[in-house]
Amino acid sequence: MSLGQPKQQSQPKQLQTKDGVSVASAVVRQNRRRRTGTEWAALVVTVLVAVVMGAPLLLVLLNAVKSPQDFADHGPLGLPTGIYLEGIKTFWEAVDFPRKVWNSVLISSLVAALGVLISVLNAYALGIGRIKGRMWVLVAFLLATIVPQEALLYPLYIMFKNIGLYDTVWAVVIVFVVIHGAFGTYLMASVFSAFPRELLEAAALDGANRRQILWRVVVPVCRPTLAVLAVFFFIWTWNEFLIPLSFLVSADNQTVQVGIATLQGERIMNVTTISASALLGIAPTLLFFLVFQRTLTRGLTAGAIK
């Protein structure tokens, strides 16, 4: 657990001031008094907002398993009279869903892994190496996260056509490794610059060279933050639209998003197929979200404090 210590040090100071005593006494006090009307109103308002916000997704679930006849008889708001899976099956086959999911998973995983790698390398030079002119380098990376993708679109299109990467998943992977990696560089550079110097010195005294310090000291200590970064990269890439739409034209290379959007434009689907496609489109992200929810919540907190 010796490595746990620096992690604690890098915790924000504010959290440490919240000692157990004050929290405990607040909890005791909270339960002493009866709840007021305002407080009940707050609960009602926040729950109502949640219902309105969750309703569209509930509608999807409701209608994805309805037969077209059932839909015609009872409309979108009625409860399904039975479980009907033809809509899901039709959609599954129409877009070759497993293929699209595979493309999306491949692109997103590669971006997550390579994006984190490039962020770590950049941030090592900027945050720990503190090379000269790092401010300007950081500004350049920051610009990369702000620039509209449209402004890169056509030159990238020409470039990828010329080197034969157009209409391959690699084109999309490279672009997002750079764009998301730029954000990662910015975030990790500030995390690394707060890295305890004593640890680096101790490792150097033990004879570790620069490469060993990075992979055996810095990366293991920062692993939780890097995990969060990887999850973010995966979800962001999964949800990207403009670049995959522009660079992946053949059906075999398309991501889930592009496949669904193209299908939507091409043929008129009935409502149950539409709902089924939405359900299948949400499913992977939702699954991913549930699996990594704890990592994410931690990450969101960490990100917001930075």
Partner: peptide, 18 residues
């Protein structure tokens, strides 16, 4: 509240579209 945020836009559009 956060759920729509992780919803891919193509899916959100389908849901809202119908």
């Amino acid at each position: 509240y956060y759920l729509p945020q992780i919803l891919p836009i193509a899916i959100a559009a389908i849901v809202v579209g119908w």
